[in-house]
Structure formats: structure tokens, C-alpha cells
Design a protein around this nucleic acid. Structure first.
Lengths: 169, 169
DNA sequence: TATTGTTATACTCTATAACTATA
DNA sequence: TATAGTTATAGAGTATAACAATA
């Protein structure tokens, strides 16, 4: 079901036809990328809700803090989670209310906070991360280790290209 | 959990160490997959909003209808867009209000509708699809045609595995 | 003046469940 | 009884913009 006439055979196509073909391939790839992500993401969201009564953004915020035991500033969380500042305030408020993270003063800048996992947040995250890992491992169960690496490498190329500031091109 | 005799190099690691390593690789892959999708999706959403004052779900619904000129039933749209039925009603209502799609009676089943693009919807979609394609092509600009194919193939494996009904779990 | 974070607001998307009308 | 679609609701998630405190 897939046109395997894509590589060396391209030389038989003129520029315009090749462009059309490549555009089509890019679109197919995007739709598949989106579908895969949505399928896995839906499982993760459902699992987090059913088993831990939490959400993906909350989990993601805690995951960032896990990687930075000394804490992160609101601004840094905003950047890392790719959402605007107001939302970080909201999510952080919820986590503080549950006793999972805490706001600490930043010495030298009284505007800013350093947000950190509490011991309880650390323990809770460990539980969630364990389950989360199992879901993810299962999601990529169908791939061999070599294929996982390949996928990781290719997506790295996509990511770097994406993050390049869109200059005048 | 999965096929064991994958790669010669792995034989230097015991089972547990290999499991740890593979779990870690799966997690890294998932984070990268999610990031790539979010980066591209954000661009698409922004473009659709700024240039066409529309949203991704609306665009996706129209894209499905484009591929099925004879129309699709609400149930089919619900399945294809992977959202529950009530949402399809809402999105369809909006598109009908804008004159971009229409509900037609299904002969032989007076419960169901056949939803189809109007001529105006068809024309509007052509405009949007053209811009959309440009965004996507640019997103994968950094890959060679062969890499696009590879990525597509690997994600196909992920997708099929994902859609397999989760049996003994 | 610029930056950090907060507050207030509005909107889209989503799942759930009760409902109508057909089959 | 089962199915197709609708309605109503509640909540997640997001961006925007005005605002306060501090740099």
C-alpha cells in the first residue's frame, strides 16, 4: 500500500513532480506523527487521572522539578513547559495546595520564586514515574532497541530544525 | 517483555541492566516525540487562527470530508477524529453556521446524517490546505526524503502496535 | 524602563451522561 | 433493545492583557 518508488527512481521525475511527491510524504508523516502522539498521550492522561487523580501538565511540572532538585523559577518552568506564565501560577498553586511542591524565596531577587518538590512530592512523583514508565515502555514495545534509537535520532533532527529561529527563509 | 534475541552487543548486559537501559531509551524517545509534535502543532494552530480564524479540530474535520466527497456520517467522523460524538455535533454546527459544510439526509436511516463540504467549504479548505502543507513541509525541511520515509515507517510500527487491543494487562 | 510573577477573563476542546428519534 | 445523534454540563488547558512588586 505504499509507493516504494521513492529513492533512486526520483531522478525520473521532474522538479515539480518531485516537489509534489515530497510535499505529500511530509503531510503523511505529519499525520502519522500526530496520531501516534495522540494515542500515547491519551493513555497517559487516562492513567494519570484514574490512578493518581492528576493531569499531564501537573505531572510534567513535577518531572521538571525532579530533574532540578535545587528548584526552578516560574519563568524557567514557563519556558520548559512551553506555556505562558499565568498557567504556571495556576498549576503551581494546585501542587502547593496538595503539599507536593513549595515556593522558596530567591536570594537577591525578591520578585522571583524557586519552586521545588517537597519530600512528599518527591515520593509521589516516584510512584507516578514508575507507572508512567511502564506505559511508555509498552507503547514502544513493538520496536526493537535499534529502531528506538533510530526514531530518537530522526526526531532529534526534526526538533533541532524546529527550534531554529525561523529566519527569512 | 519483548523479543529477546535482538542485538549481539546487548549480550554484555545482564537482563536487568538491559531493561533499565531500554526503559530509559523509551522515555527519552517519548519526550522527544511529544516535543516535536507540540512544536509543530503549535505552529499549525497559530497559523490557522491568525490566517483563517479557525482551529485545528475544525480543519481536521474538513480534511476528512475532503477525502470523502460523498460525505461521512457523524459516527464515522467521531471515530476518525478520535473524539466522542457530542464534540462532532458542536464542531459540525459551527462549520454549518459558516456555510462550509452541510448535513444531508441518509436514505434508509433517518437517524443519521451525511456531512459533506459545501462548494464554499471545498474552496476554503483548498486555501487552508495549501498553507498548511507549506508549514508541514517546512517543519520536516531538515530531513532528507529517505529519512522522511524511515520516520514514516517506524511510526507506522508504533501506531499499529498502539492500536492493538491491550490484551492481558 | 524592564522583568517576574499574579490575577482576571474568555475561549476551545474534551468526556460523560441523560436524552430523542429512529432502527 | 440497540444505535445515531443531540443536549447539557463540568473541567482541563490555553492565551491574552492588565496589574503589582521589584530590579
Amino acid at each position: 500500500m505504499n509507493g516504494s518508488d521513492s529513492h533512486a527512481m526520483d531522478d525520473t521525475l521532474d522538479l515539480e513532480a518531485r516537489a509534489h511527491s515530497e510535499h505529500h510524504e511530509a503531510l503523511r508523516l505529519w499525520l502519522r506523527l500526530l496520531t501516534c502522539t495522540q494515542l500515547i498521550e491519551k493513555q497517559v492522561r487516562t492513567g494519570l487521572r484514574e490512578q493518581f487523580d492528576t493531569t499531564l501538565p501537573r505531572f510534567d511540572l513535577m518531572a521538571q522539578l525532579e530533574r532540578h532538585p535545587e528548584g526552578l523559577k516560574m519563568k524557567e518552568l514557563s519556558h520548559r513547559l512551553m506555556v505562558t506564565g499565568g498557567n504556571i501560577t495556576g498549576i503551581t498553586d494546585q501542587l502547593v495546595a496538595e503539599g507536593l511542591v513549595e515556593r522558596l524565596e530567591v536570594e537577591g531577587d525578591r520578585r522571583a520564586w524557586r519552586v521545588r518538590l517537597t519530600p512528599r512530592g518527591h515520593a509521589m512523583f516516584a510512584l507516578m514515574a514508575q507507572r508512567h514508565e511502564a506505559w511508555i515502555v509498552q507503547a514502544f514495545d513493538g520496536l526493537q532497541a535499534r529502531e528506538v534509537d533510530q526514531l530518537h535520532r530522526l526526531l532529534g533532527k526534526v526538533k533541532r530544525h524546529q527550534q531554529r529561529p525561523a529566519a527569512g527563509d
